[in-house]
Design a binder for these strands. Structure first.
Lengths: 403, 403
DNA sequence: CTAATTTGTAAACGGCCATGACGAAATAGT
DNA sequence: ACTATTTCGTCATGGCCGTTTACAAATTAG
């Protein structure tokens, strides 16, 4: 596939590829795909005005994309009240390449296929605790689901352009190796070796994929935000100018181990008073006087809704701790908003008051707005599948060669 | 191996300009400038192999840059032991455009001119407390220094390509307005209106410019780091993949108000136990039993060197607080290193032990390395001047039109 | 002094987008 | 119903730009 195309400076050292006409063509093909994908069916003329090229140029680009099977001609538009010849509507193809997303959860596995239009065309889920199981059988099971989903997608006229796997843990920058997944008890596991597929494989952190889903699918989500999600640990993802901040080793976003009370209880990470000691699932359950077990989040939400004072108190305190940690993060990053996702989304009603109070109290100007994701637990899976789709939109020429 | 997907989009909404041949030309001109600037004198053939274009293409690019006065032909190289015709060395011009940097400090003003080669060709400094003075007379004084430096630069055959001003406070994203500079007591001050110049003006935060100086001038500084600097307040700058993270409002990097002890002493920002309450200059002086006054940093360093236990204790505690705040930041950003700059650089010997201990103690794996800037207090001024130079290298065609 | 190698330039070539013109297809007005 | 107007998609032409190919110049190796 393509090299990393980072865009810090317009022409700075970031650009690795020589700037030649072929590169220009490739980028313009991508611009057309993005325009059509984002703005719904569009005529050639509409695309041209949007991306700043002439109609003639767009015509040839569109021809090429149609020949590659990435765009489809829907036929003449029914114009409202506009004079002039109506355009011919173009849409992203519903056949052709599909992004396969997979998720390894603590107690489930899920796989789905998303077409270029962003629609989920096939899916498979399997419940069952994975905590403590060695990686091999889990991945074997996941591979089975992938095969099923790919088969179903193929019957629908799609072919897999790539597979992205979301895992609840730290993933190295090579996007293949799970360095540490405490909730699965996996360490330095090379999923690339365990999951051989004949299309590109990417492994990523669950919170990161959740944030990307929020970015791409959320309505009104800005291009700079902090996405906080919790399953068992607490993860965050930093999105800056529409791109994920990954960190040198790929470990950025470890909000769970930000110190909240420096002399607080010891944490397995070595520190003291980390956020996870106050707002992690285990800590909240303990504070609420509940036992760990299945679907603890649902239990918490249920009890809180019933008015259980212990549970509400525990969530209130967790919100306070989150607010303290987020104050630090917001001061450092100045994001446009904070989005609560994953399990936090379901518990938001009881977390938000104390969280926002803390954030507000500790901020000089207007506090950073806190929003709740409407994707909830679907985020990581959809984000993974869409990341493959975005890769296709970002370089359609590369995919056309493989089609 | 392929890069992780989605660091940024090659043709996403980020790219504003249509991708046309002129744009390609501009980017290639920039590539040539960057190559020559970074890798010392280079022949056309060397440039070609470095940026991936052919010798013929580079020849025409170089011709254009020489005609614009941005490159100079030094004449034939004396080849060591290589066969073949020797190349003709090209270097960035020592005449032509210059970057003017300016700094508004709490008790000094400074201006310098840097040529495209990165050399300081003129400078002017003026000591005197600016704290509490209204912006108008201060800027008037600064304008006088700028005129002197520009005049001196012009005598050396340079012309000002832009002016960048570093201020100790928050600057809005428009890069003109100082929103809040507590140590100067300035609020919502539009420097663009106060400092009329006939070349582009940029205003930026001092810590940010210091970080850019570290990035561009520091030896071995990575492209992903956290630069912490302190004059009176504590500022930080986040550099991600060689670019500054600015934040939505331009306020990113406010490390001084990260909560360190959530129930600690009240802070003017509204919060409690902010880092500045422990490691800010005022707090450290109080803890050391010293009065505020002139050159307090030098005083602290002197006393600490003499072995003053009170001062050493105060710095030890400040280091601990910094370590706690930085643990949070490092967890969130996973930078390649942390760099201490500004006043912190001079106090590093007494801050570092407790700071690193705290960072190490609270980190699971190997702790993030902490380095000390060798630019010290020169950083912001140099960073400002160089930011103008970088702008020229990034788009030489724009400058050529004005030459 | 010759062969080999590398540099810089010039001419021909090909790819790509812009320009301008044209037919096609719709609406608005008569 | 018919014409004027507007917009769409396409084609031919032209200009820009990097590549290819060829060649003279300048140096080293033998």
């Amino acid at each position: 596939m393509t090299a990393p195309l980072h865009e810090a400076h317009p022409a700075g050292p970031g650009r690795a590829l020589p700037d030649t006409q072929q590169g220009m063509r490739r980028r313009n093909l991508a611009r057309v795909m993005h325009a059509v994908s984002a703005q719904g069916p569009l005529s050639r003329a509409a695309v041209a005005s949007r991306i700043g090229l002439t109609r003639a140029a767009v015509s040839t680009l569109v021809d090429e994309l149609i020949r590659s099977g990435l765009l489809e001609e829907l036929g003449p538009e029914r114009p409202g009240r506009r004079v002039g010849r109506p355009g011919s509507a173009l849409a992203v193809s519903g056949h052709g390449p599909a992004g396969i997303g997979a998720e390894v959860g603590v107690d489930h596995l899920a796989v789905c296929a998303v077409d270029l239009r962003g629609e989920v065309r096939a899916r498979a889920v399997r419940y069952g605790a994975n905590r403590g199981r060695p990686p091999e059988p889990v991945i074997e099971e996941l591979a089975g689901l992938v095969r099923r989903v790919v088969a179903e997608a193929e019957r629908a006229g799609l072919w897999p352009a790539g597979l992205a796997v979301a895992v609840p843990g730290l993933v190295a920058r090579d996007a293949r190796t799970v360095v540490r997944a405490p909730n699965l008890d996996w360490h330095d596991t090379d999923l690339g070796a365990l999951l051989p597929v004949e299309y590109p494989l990417t492994v990523g952190n669950e919170a990161n994929f959740g944030a990307l889903a929020e970015l791409w699918l959320g309505d009104g989500t800005p291009r700079d935000f902090l996405h906080v999600s919790a399953e068992i640990g607490i993860g965050a993802a930093v999105v800056v100018d529409g791109a994920l901040l990954r960190g040198t080793r790929g470990f950025a976003g470890e909000l769970g181990h930000v110190p909240v009370r420096p002399d607080g209880p010891k944490c397995p990470c070595g520190g003291r008073g980390c956020l996870e000691q106050y707002a992690g699932e285990e800590a909240v359950l303990r504070a609420a006087g509940l036992e760990p077990g299945e679907d603890r989040v649902g239990l918490l939400a249920g009890r809180a809704a019933e008015g259980d004072e212990d549970v509400r108190g525990a969530l209130h305190d967790a919100g306070t701790a989150l607010g303290i940690a987020l104050t630090g993060a917001v001061n450092l990053l100045d994001p446009e908003s904070v989005v609560l996702g994953g399990a936090l989304a379901g518990l938001a009603p009881w977390l938000l008051p104390s969280l926002e109070a803390e954030l507000d109290r500790r901020t000089a100007g207007p506090a950073c707005p806190v929003a709740v994701s409407r994707l909830g637990s679907e985020g990581p899976l959809l984000g993974a599948a869409h990341s493959v789709v975005r890769a296709v939109l970002d370089d359609p020429a590369a995919v056309a060669e493989r089609a």
